[in-house]
């Protein structure tokens, strides 16, 4: 065999084995990726199958029922958005300020490590524990009883570390060359952050906030004891009272399946699950599109 001519053909046993392993691993990884897709499709499909018959205009807008069949989830949908907006209102400024401080200003040291450590510890607190903490502080200690505000503040505590981390990571994605370019023109650090770093980080920042919004929207355990399992009855579906009970959609889903007395609890639960799932999917999809659109706009493509 001519040494030069045979070079493209695999001959040795070792090479054959390496190629076989390579093919096997490629296949295994592909199968793993495919299984995620299949699982999600099955999951969505099943919830759609169960929940779709329950969906109607009446179901989406009517107040829930305590005893009779035919209750809706109108106030719950409203409360979910209301508590989401309240939570973001409290969380975003604090988390962004903390993230900016840690990423842009903090120099390595005891204080920085302490803040990081606290944030990480806070991030690992199970949401039910945070719910009990909210119960102790807002419901009992402050005598607010079970309220929308208490629920939103509990969710603020729960999501503060994640949003701070999102901010840090978004800022870390901005090349130092931008900071240096700005500083070399005689800009102060704050001018650099406000005019160059934050606008450059707007896409990952927005994506991260919307994803966390989806999480807040679906949060349940932390709200059961703090925002409550009922909507203020006798009022309209749209109750802006900060100190009123405010059962969200996800809490309602838990409630109908575990404690509800209505005969059509399964129908209400399945419908709620579908609405919740669709909402969270919308958050995730819009996070992608917003991120894509913003980076196009700022990166000039």
């Amino acid at each position: 065999m001519a040494a030069a001519a045979a070079s493209f053909h695999v001959r040795s046993a070792g090479a054959v084995r390496r190629r076989a392993v390579n093919a096997l691993m490629t296949g295994a990884l592909w199968a793993a990726a495919l299984s995620i897709l299949v699982l999600l499709a099955f999951f969505v499909g099943y919830i759609l199958y169960l929940g779709a018959p329950a969906i109607s205009w009446h179901f989406l807008t009517a107040p829930p029922s305590e005893v009779d069949a035919g209750g809706g989830i109108g106030p719950e949908i409203f409360n979910s958005f209301y508590i989401l907006i309240l939570t973001l209102f409290f969380t975003t400024p604090i988390a962004m300020a903390g993230g900016i401080y840690l990423q842009e200003y903090a120099r390595p040291g005891l204080f920085t490590s302490a803040v990081q450590f606290c944030a990480e510890s806070l991030a690992t607190v199970p949401s039910i524990v945070m719910g009990l903490f909210g119960l102790l502080v807002f419901v009992t200690m402050l005598h607010w009883k079970v309220t929308a505000l208490g629920g939103a503040l509990t969710l603020t505590l729960l999501n503060l570390p994640a949003l701070m981390r999102v901010t840090q990571e978004a800022l870390a994605s901005v090349p130092d060359a931008f900071r240096e370019g700005s500083m070399a023109l005689g800009a102060t650090q704050w001018q650099t952050i406000r005019r160059v770093v934050l606008p450059s980080a707007i896409a990952p920042l927005t994506t991260g906030i919307v994803l966390i919004a989806g999480r807040i929207f679906g949060e349940t355990a932390a709200l059961i004891f703090t925002a409550g399992v009922s909507v203020s009855t006798g009022r309209s579906a749209y109750d802006f009272g900060l100190f009123h009970q405010a059962e969200t959609l996800s809490v309602h889903l838990w409630y109908t399946h575990s404690e509800s007395l209505v005969p059509d609890a399964a129908r209400v639960g399945n419908g709620s699950a579908l609405v919740l799932l669709v909402m969270v999917l919308i958050f995730n999809l819009s996070a992608r599109f917003i991120g894509l659109g913003l980076s196009r706009r700022f990166m000039g493509k």
């Binding site: 370019g181 023109l185 606008p199």
Partner: peptide, 21 residues
């Protein structure tokens, strides 16, 4: 140092225009 950098400008190795117009 901010005033120093105002009087002594710098151009870097890799072009680093900001992602702006």
């Amino acid at each position: 140092p901010v005033a120093v950098r105002h009087r002594i400008g710098m151009v870097f190795q890799r072009p680093n225009p900001f992602p702006k117009s």
